[in-house]
Simulated assay, not measured.
Amino acid sequence: MKNQPATLNFYTAHRRMLVDYAMQITGDRALAEDIVQDAWLALAAQGGDVIVLDPRAYLRRTIRNLAINALRRKVRERKIGGEELDASVLEVAQDAPSPEADVIARTELACVMGVLATLPERQRVAIEMYRFGGHKLREIAEHLGVSIPLVHLLVSEGLAICSERCGLERLSAKNR
């Protein structure tokens, strides 16, 4: 950790958010406090050996891993103690997509944005308002000064072009 005082300031400023994050996973405030402290100690133990560019991401990932380990430890303890385990204890929310899913999504988005740039302006605006802006067809029709059926045609044909050129099956006007 290159700049320890700055990282300590970060930790004290974001401690509550980190504890809340751990609490979402564990469901136990005291355990969440312990996990956040353990995560901070792991970060501080890095010393000058490792440069942590994003302490928030590092702490969140460490907290998530420690919380999962704590839940697994509880499961083992309950099994050894003879208690029956509630399946909800094992369900841990995934806060971020896998690296592979992230790369695929970014690649698909880049392709779609490239295709959108080649479409006529009215069609591009209609698709952007519909898919990215969350506008209704009626609102888009008013904005463009055209009929609702024409907006539907512009959006559906534009999304079909994006799907075809980017090899996406799930991209359609119905899939919002």
Rank of each mutant, 00 (worst) to 15 (best):
K136A: 11
R76W: 00
A44C: 01
L116Q: 06
P120T: 10
R124F: 09
R16Q: 10
R76Q: 07
I68G: 02
I140G: 05
R64H: 13
F10Q: 02
H143M: 09
L59Y: 02
H135S: 11
I25A: 06
R124S: 11
V112P: 06
V36S: 06
L53E: 12
P55D: 10
G27V: 08
G48D: 12
T62N: 06
L18R: 00
D20Y: 10
P120L: 10
V75M: 08
R72S: 03
M129I: 00
R16C: 04
L41Q: 09
D54Y: 11
N9V: 02
G82W: 04
L85V: 15
G27I: 09
A110W: 00
N9A: 15
V52C: 06
V36R: 03
L53V: 12
G145K: 10
D54K: 14
A87T: 14
E84H: 07
D34F: 07
A70G: 03
N65A: 11
M113Y: 05
A44T: 00
V112A: 14
I35H: 09
R60A: 08
A39V: 01
E33L: 10
K79A: 08
D20Q: 13
E100W: 13
F132S: 07
L8D: 10
R60I: 10
S88T: 15
R78V: 00
A39N: 04
E91Q: 14
A22K: 04
T12S: 04
R61G: 09
R122G: 02
L59I: 03
E83T: 08
D102L: 15
K79S: 03
A110Y: 01
A101E: 15
G133V: 04
L41S: 02
Q37P: 01
Q37C: 01
A117F: 05
M129E: 11
D20A: 14
Y130A: 11
G133E: 09
A110P: 00
K74L: 14
E139C: 07
V89P: 01
L43S: 05
N69M: 05
P120M: 08
V75E: 11
E77Q: 15
V112S: 02
Q94D: 09
G47Q: 12
W40V: 00
Y58E: 02
V92T: 14
R29G: 02
L116S: 06
L8G: 00
R138S: 11
A57W: 01
R124A: 15
T26W: 01
D102I: 15
A93C: 03
T62K: 13
L137F: 12
G133C: 06
E33S: 05
I127V: 14
D54A: 13
L71D: 04
V92M: 10
L8C: 04
Q94K: 15
E91G: 02
V36E: 08
Y130M: 07
L116I: 07
H14I: 00
R64W: 12
A32G: 08
G81Q: 13
M23P: 01
